[in-house]
Amino acid sequence: MTHQSTGRRTIRGTAVELTGLGFGASTIGNLYKLTPAEDAAAAVEASWQAGIRYFDTAPHYGLGLSERRLGAALRDRPRAEYVVSSKVGRLLVPNETSRGVDGEGFVVRDDLRRQWDFSRDGVLRSLEATLQRTGLDRLDVVYLHDPDDHWRQAAEEAMPTLAELRDQGVIGAIGAGMNQSAMLSRFLRETAADVVMLAGRYTLLDQSALDDVLPAALELGKSVVAVGVFNSGLLSGDWPAEGMKYDYEDAPPALVARAREISAVCSAHGTTLPAAAIAFAYTHPSIINVTLGMRNREHVTRNVELHRRQVPEDLWNDLRARGLIRPEVHGENQDEGVRDVFDRQGDRADS
């Protein structure tokens, strides 16, 4: 059975521990639609009650709204008991050409705008602003946010700045978060990154991360946080429908058909497509956490239940045999040598 509790796993090489399930705070920054403040607070509260202790946010999410709401919701919690990650690379600056509503997917006023900046000064300013918005005394994990078009500055200025702060004990762990896997592999191999946040590239519909970042993490003894495991929605329901999103756009009919094939196999094994989509991430030993966006209490309840559901190991065997997932995917029955690598490098799960 593939099954993950909310027990903690360490980001390898650091002292930072993440629960197996994380709270993605983009939705409480009004991603795609308005999230009432009381719903945002209730989502964090329900997550806490369910044992979730890893919370991820970013300045980009709602032009700071996500950070403010998350900080407020955690303010009275014991600081040593939870982990917060945020991101750098987009400074929030006054918007002189405001049109009233943000144009990057968040339902908020655009009094501020995002300004790309992976310089040392930009990183330090961004971190200071995040601490002010959240009211936190520190960040446990900091990621470079979508540095796709900024490799040189991100690798040569931003990451060394974060490494310096990590080495001083100001930050617990550092890395990068992206929707592609190739550059994340470069961050693991060529910079001081401890962890990467991989969005949508190791899912039931896309295992391209097996070509680069996941082997790199395995080889180097570094960690991966998986997000986007539903591929923007196509894998989030028991039966995929036309018009559902895949990687932020309408899903092509061929992908909808393939998702339905996978769903039928899941059903035959007594589970559901979204439960399998979450469990699938844990079939690779470098992935220590799945973080899901949760907008309200109901989302939390559903996602926690899906996360705790046991998925039969034979499902992966069946999907491989049908050519629906790549042959390299093995699940819990991975080569013992692979597991030994991680045992030696200090991976541990505390129940």
Rank of each mutant, 00 (worst) to 15 (best):
E190A: 11
A154M: 08
I171E: 01
S263K: 03
S181M: 02
S208W: 05
D247N: 15
E190P: 08
M178P: 07
L204K: 06
L255S: 10
E249G: 12
A254H: 11
R201A: 00
L255I: 04
V170Q: 15
A254V: 10
L184M: 10
D194H: 14
D206E: 12
G228T: 03
L162W: 03
S181P: 11
A192V: 07
V195R: 00
R166N: 08
L198I: 00
A254F: 07
V196I: 15
E242R: 12
K245N: 15
G221I: 09
K222A: 06
M159V: 10
G237H: 13
G175Y: 00
V227N: 05
V227P: 03
S232I: 08
D167E: 15
R152V: 13
I171H: 04
S263P: 02
T191D: 03
G169P: 09
L198K: 03
T161K: 04
V229H: 02
H150P: 00
A217L: 12
A257F: 06
N179E: 07
S208D: 13
S236L: 07
A154T: 12
S223M: 12
E249N: 11
L184Q: 05
S185E: 15
A254P: 01
G177L: 07
L205Q: 01
Y246C: 09
A193Y: 02
R186S: 11
A199Y: 01
V265Y: 00
G221S: 09
A193K: 01
A226S: 15
T203F: 02
P252I: 08
G233K: 06
A209S: 08
L184E: 06
Q168N: 11
S181N: 15
I171V: 14
G200A: 03
I171D: 02
W239E: 15
A176C: 14
A154I: 04
D250A: 14
E261P: 01
L255Q: 15
E190L: 09
L188C: 08
L165I: 09
G200E: 03
D250C: 09
P240E: 04
A268L: 07
A254T: 12
L165R: 13
R258G: 03
S223C: 12
A192S: 14
D212M: 04
I262V: 13
